[in-house]
Structure formats: structure tokens, C-alpha cells
Design a protein around this nucleic acid. Structure first.
Lengths: 202, 202
DNA sequence: CCGGCAACGTGACGAAAGTCATGGAAGGTT
DNA sequence: AACCTTCCATGACTTTCGTCACGTTGCCGG
């Protein structure tokens, strides 16, 4: 029996996953939680064979949890489970030390297989993501300054406000935007923010 | 036994929901599908007591499916199931004839209760959404045109592009923005989009 | 039938966003 | 040293955004 924990913030989905996985003959669900922090605590406490973690969660997302678990309890293999086929998620997840990337739109057999592979020390990646693997590992396009500007602008700050916050001239902020637009192939700040969200940059 | 069908496009989540609901003593899952169209077909064919439908699906979304099912097989009660607490979804869903709006972030007991209520002809709405019901049809809410503009702008469209799409002058679009800013207390489009997201308007 | 009102449509005009050329500072070559 | 490269900073200039005053349509209650 493979001992696993399920970390997923949507209560109903969590219960459902636990019910489904418990029906599998080779799997035993020994715990479950609703946030990244809970995930880390449970992993340390229960020492499961595999942790199945959703990515998007409040209070410590799945990728952060993978990083923590790999650091504190390296014997626990981590599988990321998500709705979204995002390059950035996959890259960050693998860098954090995940043993796999499973989409919620896969058959049950796929998850079971991913869990078995993870236990064997192999990495399992959703078939639809595998083609995107090459060319994925390059330095982060955006600089720190640029990411800061994006984050400040996200909730509606003007260039003047951003400049004040960062002790810059307004012109400097505008120039940072031009850099950002080029790197993200966006034509204005709204699109840049949308793309950055989509890629998981901010 | 309440006979239900489950319509959800994410394979794993669908399987998991079926497994979970099948464990409930009062419920029998008699069918499941992965798209709005399948939902309508299954509802007509199996005549279940209740249909549990995800909103976001390819090939006929859940709200469309509710509308069709209510039209073709009025004896089937429809429950909408979704991750997102969006005013817009709730309003459209109720207008389409849904018997309830269930968030995936609710305990299992909540769904069971919603299913029982639906069968009894009552409407069950996720607790966190109920407070928003009153203000949903008020004059200070955004008009249809205004919501359209917000949606088009969300991914970075300029006023010129929005105007072209809606067969308007650029000036009209700008004026709509001014209205939007007033109603949402936003100072620019970025903030307006952030607030609208937050409130679940778009 | 008419006044009120809400939603929509428009252009002129000031304010902000976005572009571009330029240059400084830090760190790593040869 | 001289040289790259990357990131950061700035102001002058163009484009787009946002405000305002005004006009139109259609609907509802008196």
C-alpha cells in the first residue's frame, strides 16, 4: 500500500479525491489538508510516501509547499495537481523538486500511475505538457524591478504613484513598462498584467 | 434514493465526485458526462431527479445546459457547481432556471443538502453568495454595456479596439469607462478590472 | 400625453501612459 | 587598462486614456 496525503483547498474536491483514491487497491490516504502550510505540517508528521498537492491555494501555495517539504522531509515525494497547463507552473514546480505534474483533466488511472512513478523516484508529467518541456529552462525574463512595477500596478497604481513608492522619476517607471511590454509581448499595462497572471509571474 | 447525473469536464474531478456522491446513502449516481451537450442528452435520456453541472466547460457551458434542460425536461432540477463566487454566474444561473449554486469549496454535506433542497423544489445558494443577492439587481450595478466593456478590456484591448468590436465611436467607449469608474469607485481601468474581479462581476 | 429617468452615443480637451535616444553604474571578459 | 553586457535612470515627445457637457432613445408612472 502506498501511503499518501491529499492537499487541496476546495473542500468538496478534496473530499471527492480522498474518496476516489481510497477506492484504489494500491493506495491508502492517511491524511488531508486545505493549505500549503497544512501540507508541510502533515508531511513532516505523517511521513507519507507521496504528497498530492494542488497549486492554487491560499496560505502557502502548492509550489511553496513542495519546496518546504523537499527541504524538511526529503523522503516524501511531491506531486503537483492542477487545472492549469501553465509552463511557468511546471517549471517552478520542477525547480522546487516536484516528482510530477498532474492535470485534473486526466483519467483516474493517470494519477495512480503518477503516484506509483513518484514512489519509484521517477518524474511523471502530464502528456499534454511534455512537448513544452524543451526550451523551458531559461533565466526569468523579467528583472526584479520589473516584477515590482507589475505588482504595484496590479491594483491600479498610476506611474506617478509607482514612482513615488520606488523613489524614481516618472520617466523611469515608464521606461520599465516599455521593457516589460517587450519581454511579455504586451501592448499595454492591462495586457501585461493579464499575461503575467497567466504565466504565474505575479 | 435521489437519482442524479454529474456533468463536469475535468475527468479526475468528475470521477472523484461520482465516487464521493455514490458513497452517500440517499444518493444514486445514474450517469455522468463531460460537456454541456452531454448533460442535456443525458438529462433527456435518463430523466434524473437532479443534474449537477459544472459551469466552465467546453462544448456548451453549464448555464447554457441549465437553460436547455429546463426547456426540454422541466422535471429535472439543475444545480450549478463551480469554483468561482461570481455574481455574474449566479445571476445568469438563476435566470436560466437553476435550483441552486454550489461552490466547490463547501463541505460534502452542503452538496447533499443542496441536492435534497433542489428535489423539494427549493433554491439552495452557497452561504457566501447569499449576502450578495440583494444588491445584485440594483441601479448602481453595472449595465450590460459596461460589463461588456470590462470584459473586452480585461485582456488588454484598447478603447479603439473595443469601439470597433461594439460598432461604437471611441468617445462612447471612453464615456462608458467614466461611468464604470464612478460606479466601482475606481480611478482607472486597471483598478476597475481589479475591483470587478474581486467582486465577481466579470 | 408628458415629465422624469436610465441607458446609450458623441466630440473637444486636459491628463496619463507609452516610446525613444541617451547615459551612468556594477560585474564579468580579454 | 579597455571592452562588453545587463540593469537602471532620465527627459522630450507621441499616443491613448479619461472627463465633461451635451444630445438621443425608450420606457414608466401620473
Amino acid at each position: 500500500m502506498i501511503r499518501i496525503i491529499v492537499i487541496e483547498d476546495q473542500w468538496l474536491v478534496r473530499d471527492a479525491l480522498v474518496a476516489l483514491l481510497s477506492l484504489q487497491p494500491s493506495i491508502e490516504v492517511i491524511g488531508h489538508g486545505a493549505s500549503g502550510k497544512e501540507g508541510v505540517t502533515l508531511a513532516a508528521e505523517l511521513q507519507p510516501d507521496v504528497a498530492l498537492l494542488d497549486i492554487q491555494m491560499a496560505d502557502g501555495d502548492g509550489i511553496w509547499a513542495v519546496r518546504e517539504i523537499r527541504r524538511l522531509v526529503p523522503s516524501v515525494r511531491c506531486l503537483l495537481l492542477t487545472t492549469f497547463a501553465k509552463d511557468d507552473y511546471l517549471r517552478q514546480g520542477l525547480e522546487a523538486g516536484a516528482s510530477g505534474y498532474v492535470l485534473k483533466d486526466t483519467p483516474t488511472a493517470g494519477v495512480v500511475q503518477a503516484i506509483e512513478q513518484a514512489l519509484a523516484g521517477k518524474i511523471w508529467i502530464a502528456p499534454s505538457m511534455q512537448s513544452r518541456l524543451p526550451g523551458m529552462f531559461r533565466p526569468d525574463a523579467l528583472s526584479k524591478r520589473e516584477r515590482t512595477v507589475l505588482k504595484l500596478a496590479e491594483s491600479g497604481a498610476t506611474n506617478r504613484e509607482i514612482a513615488a513608492q520606488l523613489y524614481l522619476a516618472e520617466g523611469s517607471v515608464k521606461n520599465l513598462w516599455t521593457e516589460i511590454f517587450g519581454k511579455l509581448s504586451a501592448k499595454n499595462r492591462v495586457e501585461a498584467i493579464a499575461i503575467a497572471r497567466d504565466k504565474g509571474i505575479i
